[in-house]
Amino acid sequence: MTFSLFIEQLLNGVQLGVMLFLMAAGLTLVFGIMNLINLAHGSLYMAGAFFAATVFQISGSFLLAVPIAVALTALVGGVVERAVLRQFYARSHLDQVLVTFGLILVFNDAVRLIWGVVPVPLAPPEALAGSVHLFGGVDYPAFRLAILGVGALVALGLYFVVSHTRIGMWIRAGASNRPMASALGVDVELVFSLVFSAGAGLAGLAGLMAGPITAVQVGMGEPILILALVVTVIGGIGSIRGAFVAALMIGVGDTFGRVLLPPALGSMAIFMLMAAILAWRPKGLFPVHG
């Protein structure tokens, strides 16, 4: 492997990691703070991509599609939280898994009813459609660089919000000790709603950024959900920092595993990594709950 190829693959790995982080950030907060396993997180990812495809088709502007699709996905997330999931915070994890799995089926069929079975087109915006000439003779798709940039911005933004704002303090308090945070006067219900909607919006953002490079189709959220769950568990449930580090590890590990190892082993690489890390630190890299 030449140096420029190594750099290109590293970029690919980091870019996959950033995508996974967008998915895992919402998942880990919801899991950590509300103690809710939300398997339907992948459905919100799918919703984001479909909303963006429709807005892009109507308006012709990707820049317009981004905020509208994120807002719509956050809205869908908020409605689902209020109408369904709120009843399940106090229930067992098995009940939560069952109801959110049911939601996956409902979302998939709703999308099939609205958009049909044929995958819908979503092209990158004109300005980002080609590839960019980087150092060392590496041509890299411009849209993938955009994903990298958006992911880095979101990570910085989340870091700022969680570590340096009052809402972030509530979130951290809720994540490490819910009853105590509630007793100290934090409006836990409001925090839950905000966090769930924000997580949904991030999943929608991940979905719409993935749209131009993958197929926008029914069920597109499930494969990425599995990877996002792996990231959440490795990073330590409830930890944004853990999700970021784990997402980059999984992204880079998966990319190099696929390239360097034989096929059967390559697709197992990240799961072996997860097993090794959990054997070493059973609560993940950055455990939140003491």
Partner: peptide, 20 residues
């Protein structure tokens, strides 16, 4: 000869290899 996992989403790594 490259065989990838069923249902794989991202082929950036494979495409970089084949370009090289």
């Amino acid at each position: 000869e490259v065989f990838t996992a069923m249902g794989q989403l991202d082929y950036s790594a494979e495409i970089a290899q084949l370009r090289a």
